[in-house]
Simulated scan of single mutants.
Amino acid sequence: MVRLAYIVYVTFVFFAFGGKCFDILEFNDKLIDNAIEMNRVLDPDSAFTSWIRMIMKSLQFSKRGLFDPKSHRNQDEDLLRKLAFFRVMEQHMEKTILYEVEKEKERVYTIATYLGCDCPLEYIDEARISRGFDVDLINAVCTEAGRKCVHQDVPHNACLTHVGGKIPHAGTALLGKQIDMCLGWAKTPTRQLSVAYTAPYARYETEVLFVIKFGNPGDFDPNNVRGKTIGFEDGFFTDKACLVHARDRIEGIDSMQSEQEVYKDNYELLLDDLRHDKIDAFLTFKNHITQHLKDEFEFIGDDIGCVADISLHGIKRKDNPLTWFDDTLKAMKENGKYHALCHKGNIDHGHMGKILCMEE
C-alpha cells in the first residue's frame, strides 16, 4: 500500500507540473540511463515498475521532440498532445492499480504457531489436529479481513531464534518469507531489535521464576547465582538477557561465565539436567511448565520481570507490516467480535486452561 500511495502521489505531481518537468529535466542521456537502471532492479511485475516504464516512454518521446518546449509548434497543438498523453497515462495507471489490488486479494498468507505452552492457546487434540485460541484467531481475523490465510505449525526457531544466549533474531522461515507472521510471542526489548509486533491479542501471565528440585536439596539461593550453573531454554525470552534484568537484586549475574550458562532445546532436557544435578536451577516462565513439575520440582524466588508487557503478540519481519491484521483485530475488539471469539474459546478449549482475553 505504501508503494501504491507513492505511485499515486508521484503521478499527481507529474500531472500537475509535467510542463515544468520537461523544461527542468531536459531529458539528457544520463537521466534516462539512470531511470532505466532503476527499472531493471525493481520487481518487473509491480505497479511501480509499470509506472517507470510509462515514464521511460514519455522521456524517449520527449527526447525526440514530441513535447520539446523549445520547438516552434503551435502551443495549442502541444497542449492537446500533452493532454492526450496524460489520458493514456491515466488509463494505464488505472489498469495497473486495479491489477495490484486484485493480485493482493488473491495472495495467500502463511501464519504460524508453535507448541510453546500446550495450553488453551495452542495444543494438539486427540485426533492430532492443531487446536487453540491462536488458531481460532487466525481464522477469524483473516475471514473478517477478506484475506486468504493458511495456518502452519512450526518449531519456535522458525519464527525467532536466540541460541546460546546470543541476541535474538528473526527465524529462518520468517526471514526466508515462508511465513508471514507467527503468533504466541511475548514482547521484550531485545526481540524488538529484530522483529515487529502486532497489537496484543491475549493476556498472558509471564511470571519468570527459577525451577529447582522439590525441597531444594541443593540449598539454591534465588538471590545469589554466584558459582551456580543455570539452565535456559533456547528460543524463549527467559534467557541470560532476561536474568540480567534482576542484576540489582540477584548477586553473581555479572560474573557468570559461559560454562555456567546451559542452553537446551526444550524444558524436558532442562528438567532431566536438573534431575541429574547437571545444573543447579533453570529459568522459565510459570505458565509454560507448571503442569509438568508434579512433585519432583518446584519454583523458587521472585518474578524476574523481563517482558515489556504481560500479553501475547504476533511477530513479523520489519519490512512486512501486515497492517490489515492489526486494523482488523482492532475493529473486532471495538465491535465485540473479538470478545465473542475469546468467550467461545474458553468454552471450546477450557479443558486446557483459561484464556485471558484483552480487556480494552
Rank of each mutant, 00 (worst) to 15 (best):
L175P: 02
D29K: 13
G176R: 11
K228V: 01
R203M: 13
K316P: 01
K240I: 12
I315Q: 09
E360W: 08
D136A: 10
K354A: 07
G227Q: 06
R87W: 15
I347V: 14
V41R: 15
P155T: 04
C182I: 09
E360V: 01
K228L: 08
Y109C: 06
A170E: 11
T328A: 10
F17Y: 10
N28H: 12
A140V: 09
F285R: 04
D221F: 10
D327L: 05
L98G: 14
G305R: 03
A246D: 05
S194C: 07
N224M: 06
G65F: 00
P321H: 09
S62N: 12
E94H: 09
F67W: 04
L341N: 07
R81P: 03
I355T: 07
E259L: 04
R226V: 05
G176W: 11
A246G: 02
S71P: 00
K278M: 13
L356C: 02
M358D: 10
T161V: 15
R40P: 00
M1P: 13
D180S: 12
F67Y: 14
D45W: 05
E26M: 03
A202H: 11
P217I: 04
F325N: 03
L243C: 10
N39L: 10
C357D: 10
F232S: 07
E261K: 07
G231P: 00
N320V: 04
P222T: 00
V225T: 06
F15L: 09
G252E: 09
C149F: 10
K148R: 15
P217G: 05
H151D: 13
G165V: 08
A241P: 05
A84Y: 15
D303I: 09
Q178Y: 11
A16F: 01
R203I: 01
H292A: 03
D29Y: 09
V88W: 14
Y267R: 10
L121I: 03
G301C: 08
N266Q: 08
M256S: 03
F86L: 12
I55C: 15
L283G: 10
D33P: 04
L193E: 14
D234I: 01
L269M: 09
